[in-house]
Structure formats: structure tokens, C-alpha cells
């Protein structure tokens, strides 16, 4: 059956529109990152879409080098916020994934009923804002305010339901015969879990971990509320990039945004093959 020409045109137009919606802002950010101040500043004389005189000034600027064009001096460079974001997101992901995987396995193999899994998953629907005030008080009491470990802990807690739910689905889909085959050979549950289940779950683990990492990496609200100075994260730091003279420092923000996009992109490429397999895990049994 051949599709009609108008339909084909419409189809491609829609695809182009969808691509444009996602790609144009990214392209715009990338081009912005390499523009000199005159091309992006509100006071600048000639705003452009594409940099006429490409420069690395914006990158130099956020890492603390004095550049001629930008007069405003930063009270801190981007290095520490990048480190803060990395540490908090990585350790937050570790916490969420290890607790979530353990909980998912336990409930998938030994749990009965739907209530507990559902209750855990529903925590995800709870707006973090609603609990942030008590969390701030608790974190202050524990001395966790403005530290990457404090952030990592809350990130782990907030993304735990998501990690749990993803892993539970994967464990439910894994044929139980595979574990029983190992159990019948006389291995303990724990050994079977470590030597058989987890290695066979590499793909699902990798894709879940990536989703959780991206959630943590892109958080703004929690970082804003729980850090003040020492360990602000990239999104919080980005919001602070402005000056009274030039207003929003769009060039610097774009440069930082481009840097912030690197880890998810690298992760995505690295686990691309696992992502596809992770999402089609049911095919294991055939």
C-alpha cells in the first residue's frame, strides 16, 4: 500500500517540526556560547544568529580568566559548581540505584500484593516542593546544608522511587527459571543474586542508572534550597550569572549549558546499545 503524496508531505513536515522544536534551542545555545559579548548582550550593537567573530571568551570567563569584553567580575568560577553537580548526581544515583535495586528485587521475588510497590512508586508523584521545608530543617539539624553529600543524600532519596519502579519492572520480567536453575545447583540466594541476576541485569541497570543520573543532574530546586555558597550546583550557579551592568550573561550561561550537556550525552552514547536492550529486556527468554 502506497501512501499519498499529501500525506507524505504532512508526515515529513511534522517530523521536521518536532526536530526543530528540540534541536533549535540547542543549536542556538551552542552558537551563543561562541559569540563575543557584542553579539549577545542586550546592550550589544549587533545581535546575530550565528557568531560573526567566534570566540572562546565565554568559556574563559566562567573559569575565571579576565577577558577584555566582560567587565563584571565573578565571585566564583564554574569549576566548583561542576564538581558539586558531578559529586551530588553520581553519589545520589549510587544511593538510589543500590537501595532501589535491592528493594525492587526483594519485592519482585518475595513480596506479595500490590500495595507496597504502588505506595513506593507513588512517592514519585509527590511534589518535592511540598516536603522541602521539613527537609531543609532536618538537613540544617544534621549539618548537611551546603554540602555535596547532603545533596547526594536527598537526590538519592528523591529518585529512589523511580529507580525502584524501573528495576522492579525488569526483575518481574526476568524468567524465574534462570535463578531456580542456579538455586537447584546449591547456590545461596545471595550468591545467585550477585553472580547470576545482577550480571544478567547489566543492561537494565545501565539504562535505569542513566535516567536517574539525568534526573539528579538537572535538578534546580533542591540545589537552590539546600546550598548557599560552597557547593552550589551548575543550575543554581547558572541562575546567578548576571550583572547589574549587562543584565543576564547569556553568553556565559550558554557556555555553561553546553558543558552541562556533556555528561548526559557521553552517558547516552556509552550505553546506547544497552539502552535499546534494556528497554526490550523481555526478549531475553525468546
Amino acid at each position: 500500500m502506497r501512501r499519498s503524496l499529501p500525506f507524505e508531505l504532512f508526515r515529513y513536515a511534522m517530523i521536521a517540526l518536532a526536530l526543530a522544536l528540540t534541536l533549535i534551542p540547542i543549536l542556538w545555545m551552542a552558537s551563543m556560547a561562541f559569540k563575543p559579548i557584542a553579539e549577545w548582550s542586550a546592550s550589544g550593537a549587533d545581535l546575530t544568529w550565528w557568531p560573526k567573530a567566534p570566540t572562546l571568551d565565554n568559556f574563559r570567563y566562567i573559569f575565571g580568566e579576565q577577558t577584555t569584553a566582560l567587565i563584571a567580575t565573578l565571585d566564583r568560577t564554574a569549576t566548583k559548581p561542576i564538581l558539586a553537580s558531578l559529586l551530588a548526581a553520581v553519589f545520589g544515583t549510587l544511593i538510589a540505584m543500590s537501595a532501589g535495586t535491592a528493594a525492587a528485587y526483594g519485592l519482585s521475588r518475595f513480596g506479595s500484593g500490590q500495595n507496597l510497590p504502588l505506595a513506593l512508586t507513588q512517592l514519585r508523584l509527590f511534589p518535592p516542593m511540598a516536603v522541602m521545608i521539613p527537609v531543609m530543617i532536618m538537613w540544617a539539624f544534621l549539618g548537611l546544608i551546603d554540602s555535596w553529600w547532603g545533596l547526594a543524600l536527598i537526590y538519592g532519596i528523591v529518585t529512589l522511587p523511580f529507580a525502584f519502579w524501573l528495576m522492579k519492572t525488569f526483575f518481574d520480567e526476568m524468567p524465574k527459571e534462570i535463578e531456580e536453575a542456579a538455586l537447584v545447583e546449591g547456590c545461596s540466594r545471595f550468591r545467585v543474586f550477585m553472580k547470576i541476576t545482577l550480571p544478567m541485569m547489566r543492561a537494565p541497570l545501565a539504562s535505569s542508572a542513566m535516567f536517574v543520573f539525568i534526573l539528579n543532574w538537572s535538578d534546580y530546586l533542591i540545589g537552590l534550597l539546600l546550598t548557599t555558597k560552597e557547593w552550589v550546583t551548575i543550575p543554581v550557579y547558572m541562575a546567578s550569572l548576571s550583572s547589574s551592568m549587562t543584565g543576564q550573561l547569556y553568553g556565559a550561561k550558554a557556555a555553561l549549558g553546553l558543558i552541562a550537556a556533556i555528561p548526559p550525552v557521553i552517558l547516552g552514547i556509552a550505553i546506547q546499545k544497552h539502552l535499546v536492550r534494556g528497554l526490550t529486556f523481555g526478549a531475553l527468554k525468546q
Partner: peptide, 19 residues
């Protein structure tokens, strides 16, 4: 427990450790 019964078991869906 099943590990202590000294039985070998072959499943319909070959339970192979694919890794």
C-alpha cells in the same frame, strides 16, 4: 531446600546464564 536435594533440573525455557 532445593539446593540440598541432589536433583538436576532442566527447564522448558532453557535457563541459560547468557552472560
Amino acid at each position: 531446600p532445593m539446593g540440598k536435594r541432589g536433583v538436576g533440573f532442566v527447564f522448558q525455557n532453557y535457563a541459560i546464564f547468557t552472560h
